[in-house]
């Protein structure tokens, strides 16, 4: 029973949602939207599990004097302060209807001067990682990687003034070989073909995966293998 009921729930919910696309009549037409809202609500409850896990992992490290335990104190403190600042709207208008992101409130300040620079810098590190990945790609060892590199190179050049300059001397009949023209051709023809093949493949993969899940053929996510 413990295993069967979840499989039945998945089957009913999944198949009703698929069928409901063809049935505009109430309540079917709205189901997809409603179920997404249900998920949002479930996710908030689940967050209590996540936060509990975070506190347990770092609490353990502090308790057991793990090598890096002082950093765990930072994590726990950061979490607690942010949560209290937000839930109690410290420094802002209190009450349920008060503006959470009011300028000058502690929550907003922490967001602006701690959260945002950390996030933006982490994102900006990508510039270095892109450079190192490109470096690796430059040492392309096989034909496939060489094709990838060439396409990347043309597109990259096509987006820079240098690339425009480089081939602007070409005579008119050969203008299709000018880097910006070549780049836009690659984007709109072979790139598009590859994208379409990938997307069609993904759609078929999702359809088969969804069917395996709905029909109960795939139930690993329920941890049902042992019975």
């Amino acid at each position: 029973m413990r295993r069967q009921i979840p499989v039945v729930i998945t089957f009913i919910v999944g198949s009703v949602l698929i069928i409901s696309v063809f049935i505009p009549h109430k309540p079917f037409g709205q189901l997809g939207e409603n179920f997404s809202v249900y998920f949002d609500i479930i996710a908030v409850f689940a967050f209590i599990l996540g936060a509990g896990n975070l506190l347990r992992v770092h609490g353990n490290r502090i308790y057991k004097k793990h090598k890096d335990w002082p950093y765990s104190v930072v994590t726990v403190a950061g979490f607690t302060v942010m949560m209290i600042a937000g839930l109690f709207k410290i420094g802002g208008s209190p009450g349920i209807t008060g503006d959470l992101t009011e300028p000058g409130s502690m929550f907003e300040d922490l967001y602006m001067y701690v959260f945002t620079p950390l996030m933006a810098t982490m994102f900006a590190l990508l510039a270095f990682y892109v450079a190192s990945a490109s470096h690796r790609a430059f040492r392309a060892k096989n034909k496939e990687a060489t094709v990838l590199l060439l396409a990347a190179f043309v597109i990259l050049l096509g987006r820079t003034p240098f690339g425009v300059e480089l081939t602007s001397w070409l005579p008119d009949p050969l203008s299709f070989l000018e880097i910006p023209n070549l780049a836009s051709w690659i984007m709109s023809v072979p790139n598009m073909a590859g994208q379409r093949a990938i997307m069609v493949g993904i759609a078929l993969g999702v359809i088969a995966m969804a069917l395996r899940v709905i029909l109960g053929v795939e139930r690993t996510y329920l941890g049902a293998d042992s019975e």
């Binding site: 979840p6 998945t10 919910v13 698929i18 249900y38 998920f39 069609v200 993904i202 995966m209 709905i214």
Partner: peptide, 24 residues
């Protein structure tokens, strides 16, 4: 597992349709 089954069932149903329409 019940809410999980609900979540997985509804994502399977929703993605089935959206990917089928927009991707395929």
């Amino acid at each position: 597992r019940w809410p999980l089954a609900f979540t997985v069932g509804s994502s399977a149903g929703l993605y089935f349709i959206t990917y089928f329409q927009s991707n395929a």
